[in-house]
Write a protein that binds this DNA or RNA. Sequence first.
DNA 1: TATTGTTATACTCTATAACTATA
DNA 2: TATAGTTATAGAGTATAACAATA
Lengths: 157, 157
Amino acid sequence: MDTRSDEEIRGDLSYLFDKSSQALGARMATALSEVGITPREYCVLSKAGAGELTQRELGAVALMDKTTMVVTLDRLEKSGLARRVPSPTDRRVRIVQATDAGVRVIRRAKVIIDAVYDDVLGVLPEADRTTLLDALVRLVGAGGPLGSVEPRSSATV
Amino acid sequence: MDTRSDEEIRGDLSYLFDKSSQALGARMATALSEVGITPREYCVLSKAGAGELTQRELGAVALMDKTTMVVTLDRLEKSGLARRVPSPTDRRVRIVQATDAGVRVIRRAKVIIDAVYDDVLGVLPEADRTTLLDALVRLVGAGGPLGSVEPRSSATV
DNA sequence: TATTGTTATACTCTATAACTATA
DNA sequence: TATAGTTATAGAGTATAACAATA
């Protein structure tokens, strides 16, 4: 598909990141379809777990809009993997829980995901793998050039 | 925004790639807006150059659908950065050329892009930077686990 | 008056299908 | 019959605004 040489794409950081993200996402979607969920559904379902979080909190953790959360949960509920439980203390909010079937799916999905990671990273020598992951965390993590801005203390502003 | 620790996100390769791609894309879009083009427009315009490629060929090189190419070129033409020239040999096809203004914009954009790359990768020690880029090329390049499949010789099939 | 979750709506990006004009 | 480019359209994904129920 790509007609450029390895040397050419090495200088195109945007392409390297975009392609990595897109290709891994596609692989993951294919692999997870075996257990009948999408990567986004796994993200939500695995964070919901036993059920401590409200829809709003879950949206905050999974970095998605509350309206996106609604449609995601609609699908998870329809396929019997999650349920919305009314909060006993606040009748506005709903706690999200993975069902028993949902917990089983998460467990199987986790195995699949780890296998894909191993398969992808397996082409790299152990030392390079460590450097790659550490470098990405450095770039993307708090304070990094691609991470969210650290909330400064008001004194520095 | 992200409430997880560095140790947690280190195990989430999908997140690392997605966030890298998304955050760099956002930074790049902001930086390039200074010269009035989007990353996608830069991609097309820089590959068009003096004008050797048809719309279809340009779409193949830039990895985008011909209908996406149409709207991208419509915008580039409207802002005076590219033009469609009828091919002298085939009246169906159109050669895409960057205008003089387009060439100037590409040149300025290239400086901006390199500055962003330097700024982002600058937080890494030189050795780690090399390992990171080499590793990504290995993963994404031809034959890698996230790359396009090499067309095998018919003998091996 | 503010908040949770829902619905309706719109916007972007991208792709599919149908069309035209050529070959 | 096939191809280059265009148009129309539809599908994801995501976001904004208005709304109902509740605080």
